[in-house]
Design a protein around this nucleic acid. Structure first.
Lengths: 231, 231
DNA sequence: CGCGGCTTTGATGTTCATCAAGTAAAGTGG
DNA sequence: CCACTTTACTTGATGAACATCAAAGCCGCG
């Protein structure tokens, strides 16, 4: 029974500032003991719609999509998001089961903490509770705002919106590899796959973007912004 | 300075079970001192998009709509909701200003509590915090689910959905007075006013509903459900 | 190298918004 | 309370936006 104690790496986790800022050393150590890191390869499912929620999960690295399946069997993509933006499913406190599925668009690392431990923390540490509520509210707000924004746009405005989302929010670069298929974009903005492709082709013809397979280069950012706003 | 103390009516408020279940007598009394009831007539604005959030508000009675104004100047209705479903704006902890406007669709009574007082309660009472988070999560979940549900439907499915929403969720009756204009329905489901009216007329012609001005009677509930699901 | 999935493009039809013109209903001021 | 104004509602006709279908090209993978 010598030195089984793992070093507390949570102490220096970049995620600490996001929701665990107000934990003292002892809590952080306990957190470390209750957590586990899981790796997911591109395409793997992290949470499954309908499954029981037993853990509090957050994304340490990678990229994921939140989605659900409709009665007709097709996918509705709710949002695509990076680390720190995404803290587990949003309904961990209000629902017993996952409302939506989450899958990895890129290789991802997820930190998993026992949910009852998080709930205890929440009950006993007001500042932690406040931080968590704020974070969850922000995530929900962002999803709702995004959905409303998309809804008011027409086809080309929506495609422009998605391209800008990847450029500005996800990759912060005008050149990037699309982490999703054309169909997934269609499922995200609520349009048909064929028309998403057609619009991308149109943008290419007009010199707004360049396409090399999955790689996209935004040439005329301003024009894209105008199209997105007008749409 | 004799007996200025108001009797604590919050003690028996029906709303107590919703978010204030875990407060002891003393806190309830304090709550009572920090709260104020406001009445709003049909059509009046309760919260204004962009205004600073200084109070925690919840609906005691009436009916309200949550909406925002797009850049083009038209309205997007986010949700329509009854008491107990609606606890202030959802972003009281994550935002400094209201993201959306709220207005009364029927005469409504709103209970207003100083926000800093609520924050103190939140920090010092874990169970209250948990209850509040759960409630806020539920509201957000409902909005997101509703938006996704509407998005996947076509025009007639959406109109059927709205009618069912009023029948089942809002009025719990197959006969009800529409609390919104045709245009507001259109802004809610993201369609043109003319087509909403047309669809209602079609439903009438097919004997699914009866219309007397603002009064609607759902005759064939089953059929409406089928249309809503298919849509 | 051949198979299956993703992508692309064109042709076609449906769905839906827009426009216009008219009717009903609801305020408003004398 | 009535004439007047305004706002909401209704219906038809038209065209634009978008989905669907089909066929062909591309690419990765066994």
């Amino acid at each position: 029974m010598s030195d089984k104690k793992k070093p507390c790496i949570c102490e220096n986790c970049e995620f600490r500032d996001v929701v665990f800022a107000y934990l003292d050393e002892k809590s952080i150590e306990q957190l470390c003991e209750h957590k586990e890191e899981e790796s997911f390869r591109k395409g793997e499912i992290i949470n499954h719609e309908g499954e029981k929620i037993t853990n509090f999960k957050y994304l340490k690295s990678g990229l994921v999509k939140l989605y659900r399946r409709t009665l007709n069997g097709d996918e509705q993509v709710i949002t695509i998001t990076r680390p720190f933006e995404f803290v587990s499913n949003m309904s961990i406190f209000s629902e017993e089961r996952y409302q939506y599925s989450v899958s990895a668009l890129e290789d991802s690392v997820v930190c998993t903490v026992d949910l009852t431990f998080i709930k205890e923390l929440f009950l006993n540490n007001g500042h932690f509770a406040m931080g968590l509520l704020t974070k969850i509210s922000m995530i929900n707000d962002k999803i709702i705002r995004q959905t409303l924004d998309i809804r008011q746009k027409n086809l080309i405005g929506r495609v422009a919106f998605v391209l800008l989302y990847f450029t500005d929010d996800i990759y912060n670069s005008r050149v990037f590899d699309l982490p999703v298929s054309r169909k997934e974009i269609a499922d995200y903005i609520g349009m048909s796959t064929a028309n998403v492709i057609r619009t991308l082709s149109d943008f290419k013809k007009e010199g707004i973007i360049r396409i090399f397979g999955k790689t996209i280069e935004v040439v005329d950012l301003q024009r894209l912004e105008i199209i997105s706003r007008r749409g």
